[in-house]
């Protein structure tokens, strides 16, 4: 059994305490101190650092608001890859494997775990590149299946329910003014026409009073 790997990150990088304005512009009230050790399910700590850096280029933290690092996108991706999705448990994986026309989508044999492992390897010492070098490197691979997965997963990690490991402190939802899975808008749907209506976000667990069952935790 392989040694358990951890990703060590400053606590402030994962959520922290954010406020948001009615216009949906978040700002940090107060950063938390110290570091957090997050156990990894699939990545090695080195791989996690590469993925963190690449996701930060795709969805950067900048003047428009927080990005992939604060949302904990790497933790989201790590869990997706370790779960049934990463192992292609629900994809048709019988051969023969043939390349076809683009209208038939991804016909490759590699599952997401394998695609990431190779893709990260090809990025080399990415985490220590300058920002410009990182952008240049990602631009060079932006048509690859690996990059398309990475981009898609970055958006998913920004905006999926925090039970999946990303969207820490609901910062993704605060960023776009999404209130989370509320039980009812019966009295709101036909109001607020033309005006932003941004109720305070809540996670599925906060709304339901009990945790959801993320698919990545499925056994077998």
């Amino acid at each position: 059994m392989k040694r358990r790997e951890f990703l060590t990150v400053p606590a402030a990088a994962l959520g922290g305490t954010l406020l948001y304005t009615l216009a949906g512009e978040p700002f940090r009230l107060q950063a938390q101190n110290g570091t957090v050790k997050v156990p990894l399910r699939f990545f090695t700590a080195d791989e996690a650092r590469v993925v963190t850096a690449a996701c930060e280029r795709i969805f950067p933290s900048d003047a428009t608001g927080p990005g992939a690092t604060e949302a904990g996108v790497v933790i989201f991706i790590d869990r997706q890859l370790a779960g049934p999705y990463g192992r292609d448990k629900y994809r048709y994986t019988k051969g023969p494997w043939v390349q076809s026309v683009p209208e038939h989508g991804y016909q490759g044999k590699e599952n997401p775990q394998e695609t990431y492992r190779q893709g990260i390897k090809d990025l080399g010492n990415f985490a220590s590149f300058t920002v410009d070098e990182q952008i240049k490197k990602l631009t060079a691979i932006e048509r690859t299946h690996f990059f398309q997965l990475l981009r898609t997963h970055t958006i998913e990690g920004m905006f999926s329910d925090p039970m999946h490991g990303g969207n820490a402190g609901l910062i993704g939802w605060q960023l776009v003014g999404y209130p989370g899975p509320q039980m009812s808008y019966r009295n709101e749907i036909d109001k607020h026409f033309g005006q932003p209506w941004r109720p305070k976000p809540a996670s599925l667990e906060q709304v339901m009073g009990r945790p959801g069952k993320p698919w990545e935790d499925e056994k077998g």
């Binding site: 448990k89 629900y90 994809r91 026309v101 998913e156 999946h164 899975p181």
Partner: peptide, 27 residues
């Protein structure tokens, strides 16, 4: 507790398991 966009709307948790059976297509 299924109001989860990722698992249901994107990963399509309620749909047939394509690993077991799918269709093939040609133009």
């Amino acid at each position: 507790v299924t109001m989860d966009e990722l698992d249901y709307n994107i990963r399509l948790r309620m749909m047939q398991n394509t690993a077991e059976e799918t269709i093939t297509h040609r133009h």
